[in-house]
Simulated assay, not measured.
Amino acid sequence: MYHPYFRGKQFDLLTIKESAEILAKSGFISIIEPVRESLSGLKRSIEALSNAGAIAALIVNPNYGDHTDSAEAIKKFVHEELDTHTNISVGILLTSTINTTEALSITSEFPNRPLYFIHSGFSEPKALAESTGSLNRDIKHVFLESHCGKLYQKHFTDYQRVLLRDGFKRQANRKYPDVEPFSDLHATFNDEGMNGFGDFLIVGDEYSESGGPAYAVAIHLTFIDPDMDDAMYTYHFKSDRQDTPTDPAGKFYEALVKLVAAVKEPNSKILRTSAVEEFLGLYDRKHFPGLGYIKKLSMKHHIEVLANYLG
């Protein structure tokens, strides 16, 4: 059903690890693109998913990060470290730089794993559909909406299909509006002829190794609005000060004051998830846990919101 797409940075992997139980209970399937050379954090996250009984797809040919020149370390990781983890499918990222022959070559390296083809700029959909039609494999196709139109998707109507929409448009924190639309795909994926949907949580598809100096601190919280046909929106709670990159802790508290006020409003549409409760605890203690930790809480909240809606 829901397929959150993670790139394997530290706090993305911690989000997976700490959300393993709710991912499993909700039947959510994480898609993980490893971007760090060290795979120890990835291993811990996958172990947490396995222990909870959750399913995930691990991309073995990432497009970003430390493994783009050679994916041999990831392939070795799957064969040696994940041998007993039967809940992990192999994801193959289909970008403009890969062809059908190369994609099929990767599938042959993992004959006993279910397959996820993630379509992101690939130019040979017809050839791939014809070539995989005779494979006796469990295959799902995931389409990044910005790369795959209806005619493209039509080649794979005989398969389980997932539509991935980037609902989070990244920009400088100070430029975010107070609230903006995120997506309605959680409510409309069946109307799109899909078996499931996904997104990039509150991180977005745009990849960067690290953020620049935070002139403004923003906390991003998604919510579903029943007054707007259950569409999802994002609150951007921003610090008051936005002119210098100093005092991130103080700026976090300024943003947090606005979050707490919105949560405590009568008829607030913000779900009181475990992540929101932790934000309230940080407010009470006036504690700044770091910008990565804040991102992790926002991602966990997003997962819990969708689990509540779809449950």
Rank of each mutant, 00 (worst) to 15 (best):
P177Y: 06
K286N: 14
A187H: 05
L144F: 08
K76P: 00
E33D: 12
N267L: 12
L93E: 04
T15Y: 00
R241Y: 12
R113G: 09
R36K: 14
R165G: 02
S120V: 07
A172P: 04
D284G: 09
L280N: 03
E145R: 07
I270L: 15
G212P: 09
F110N: 05
F237Y: 12
D66N: 08
A20C: 01
A52H: 05
H287D: 14
S274R: 04
G167P: 05
R7D: 15
K269Y: 05
A231E: 07
F143D: 09
E102S: 09
I202W: 00
D230T: 02
S183E: 06
V35M: 06
I59K: 02
L93K: 07
L271P: 01
S70E: 07
Y5L: 01
E33K: 03
Q171K: 06
L13S: 02
E109V: 05
G311N: 14
G167R: 03
S298L: 07
L93Y: 10
P62G: 13
Q160M: 11
T86E: 11
D12P: 00
R44K: 11
F6R: 00
T273H: 04
E145T: 07
F6P: 00
T157I: 13
Y5C: 04
I59D: 05
L135M: 11
A73Y: 01
Y116Q: 06
L93T: 02
N267D: 15
H301Y: 08
I98C: 13
T107G: 05
G53A: 14
Y159K: 08
A54Q: 01
E145D: 13
R241C: 14
L280R: 03
I139V: 15
G211Q: 07
E206T: 10
D230S: 09
L185R: 05
E37F: 14
R174F: 09
K75V: 02
Q10I: 06
T188V: 09
D284Y: 09
D12R: 00
T97C: 11
L13F: 01
D247P: 04
N61W: 11
T244A: 13
D69F: 11
L291V: 13
L306V: 01
E265A: 11
R44N: 14
A187V: 07
G204S: 01
P4Y: 04
T97V: 08
S108D: 15
I55P: 03
H3P: 02
S183W: 00
Q10R: 07
D138N: 10
Y233M: 11
E130W: 02
D191M: 12
Q242V: 10
L282Q: 02
N99K: 09
N190S: 14
Y293L: 06
A307H: 03
D284H: 08
R113P: 10
I46M: 00
K25D: 15
G212D: 12
I224M: 04
G198D: 12
F252P: 04
K43T: 05
Y2K: 02
F279M: 12
D227S: 14
I92A: 00
N190C: 08
V217R: 02
T97F: 15
E80L: 12
R137N: 08
E192Q: 13
V260S: 10
A20Q: 00
L297Q: 06
S38Y: 05
R7L: 11
S210V: 10
A54N: 04
N267I: 11
L42F: 03
T273A: 10
N190I: 10
I294A: 05
D243L: 10
D12H: 03
A262C: 13
L135G: 13
K258M: 05
L310A: 08
L13W: 00
E124G: 06
